[in-house]
């Protein structure tokens, strides 16, 4: 493609990328993809993209004024049609595929953790000062990891939010798993964690429905393993939380 057309495409591309970054950040959809810690870099990148678009545009004006021939050549090379198709893929996937946080579909290739991920059991256990009601699924699994005796949790009250997961391992129609994905950096390192829930109407709950579960722990058996099971007193469908993932 001609040098001037390549420049205009570049300017447009960087503006589109800036818009994409800003849109993901402002809508909160960004948290479907990456963790809180470095989310601020995305709006910074949006500003950077605008800067680069300006740079390309201003240099274009300059090149015309000074008639710098070699300049046009240099920048013409950087953009091939094939290269353009590649860099546009993120925008296409972002805009055409309806965004959605990781759900049970992602579990097809993953094991679901009935124990806490390794790192959690080592360091990230929350201070005890946190009330029981504030413990999320990850906190509970960390507690289970610290005390391997499931009897110790019998009668303790829990209140957690997660999505419904069920597969062929669940023989009974009265149980499901309340599940979250836990991430450290972004979804690339996501690991699924869940609590086993006993609930008479479990069958009526569709997979991937977000629910709030209140109940007390009892000892149950899952695949020959004795572990704490949350006996639900109340299961209410809820809106997916703004932060779909847990962090550790």
């Amino acid at each position: 493609m001609s040098a001037s057309r390549a420049r205009w495409i570049k300017v447009l591309f960087f503006l589109a990328l800036a818009f994409f970054f800003a849109q993901r950040f402002l809508s909160g959809i960004l948290f479907y993809y990456i963790g809180r810690r470095f989310a601020w870099l995305v709006p910074v990148a949006a500003i950077g993209c605008v800067g680069m678009a300006l740079g390309v545009w201003l240099q274009r004006a300059e090149a015309h004024a000074h008639d710098h021939d070699e300049d046009g050549h240099r920048h013409g090379h950087a953009l091939t049609r094939a290269g353009l198709v590649l860099v546009v893929i993120p925008l296409l996937l972002g805009w055409l595929v309806p965004p959605r946080p990781l759900g049970s579909a992602a579990l097809a290739t993953r094991e679901i953790g009935l124990g806490a991920p390794e790192q959690v059991s080592i360091g990230a256990v929350r201070p005890i000062a946190l009330g029981r009601h504030e413990k999320n699924i990850l906190d509970w699994l960390a507690a289970f990891a610290q005390n391997p005796d499931p009897q110790a949790f019998v009668g303790q009250e829990a209140h957690v939010v997660g999505f419904v997961y069920r597969d062929e391992r669940f023989e009974s129609e009265t149980s499901f798993m309340v599940t979250r994905f836990a991430i450290t950096c972004c979804v690339a390192d996501a690991t699924a964690v869940g609590l086993l829930v006993r609930w008479p109407q479990a069958e009526a709950l569709a997979i991937d429905t977000w629910v709030e579960v209140r109940g007390r722990f009892d000892v149950g058996v899952f695949q020959g393993q004795s572990l704490p099971v949350l006996v639900a007193e109340r299961v209410v469908p809820v809106e997916p939380p703004a932060q779909p993932y847990l962090y550790y």
């Binding site: 970054f21 993809y33 870099l41 995305v42 993120p90 972002g94 959605r100 946080p101 992602a106 972004c186």
Partner: peptide, 17 residues
């Protein structure tokens, strides 16, 4: 496809900045 797209964009959005 959504899972694929989410993981892909997760890596891309974390890395692009």
């Amino acid at each position: 496809v959504q899972t694929f797209s989410t993981i892909f964009l997760g890596i891309f959005l974390e890395a692009a900045p």
